[in-house]
Structure formats: structure tokens, C-alpha cells
């Protein structure tokens, strides 16, 4: 159903680093789940529209009226790393 290389690709897309020991187990688990959910491939869905939401069909829009933003202290208070004005992140280019 799903092989090791696909699992690694998916993990990379999802930014999950898998331990070597986990890869086999998760490949097996995903395969068995996909095997089960694949039963919907047997249904004839010709002409059936997809449903994204079951109740409301179109959304109300928001009037273009400003509201107060959060204070900077509140914004930064939960950050793992900040320089006092912004959120520090490791360099996107890779390690130093």
C-alpha cells in the first residue's frame, strides 16, 4: 500500500523526523489503515458532488473595520526564543 520511500517523503513534507526504528512500524500501520479506508474506492461516485461542509453553504463576509491588535508583550510572551521585538528562528539556510 505505502512503501518506505513514500513514508520518508510524507514525513519530510510533514516535518516529522522519524527514527530509523519507527519507520517500519509506521509503514505497517499506515498500510493497514489505508487498506481499510481504501474500501471507498469500490463505491460508484459518478456524479456525486463533494461535501466540504454539511450545513452552511456560503460564508458571511467580515466588514472592513479595524479592531485592536494584541500588544507586543502578549504576542512574544509565549515564544521559545525572541530578541524582544521578533521571534527568533534558526537560519532557514541550514546549520551554521
Amino acid at each position: 500500500m505505502i512503501d518506505r520511500s513514500e513514508v520518508l517523503h510524507i514525513a519530510r513534507l510533514a516535518r516529522l523526523s522519524l527514527e530509523e526504528t519507527e519507520i517500519e512500524a509506521i509503514t505497517a500501520e499506515l498500510s493497514s489503515i489505508l487498506d481499510h479506508v481504501d474500501q471507498i474506492s469500490s463505491l460508484d461516485l459518478e456524479g456525486v458532488e463533494p461535501t466540504a461542509h454539511s450545513v452552511a453553504q456560503s460564508g458571511a463576509l467580515r466588514p472592513d473595520v479595524p479592531v485592536e491588535s494584541l500588544g507586543k508583550d502578549a504576542v512574544l510572551s509565549q515564544a521559545p526564543a525572541t530578541d524582544g521585538s521578533g521571534f527568533e528562528v534558526p537560519s532557514p539556510g541550514g546549520g551554521s
Binding site: A14, R15, L16, S17, V89, P90, S91, P92, G93, G94, G95
Partner: peptide, 11 residues
Amino acid sequence: EGLDAMYGATR
């Protein structure tokens, strides 16, 4: 080891 490594390890 950079941004992506931080994402991967954190998540």
C-alpha cells in the same frame, strides 16, 4: 542544524 531540523525535532 537550521530551520527544517528544528521543525522536525520539535514536531
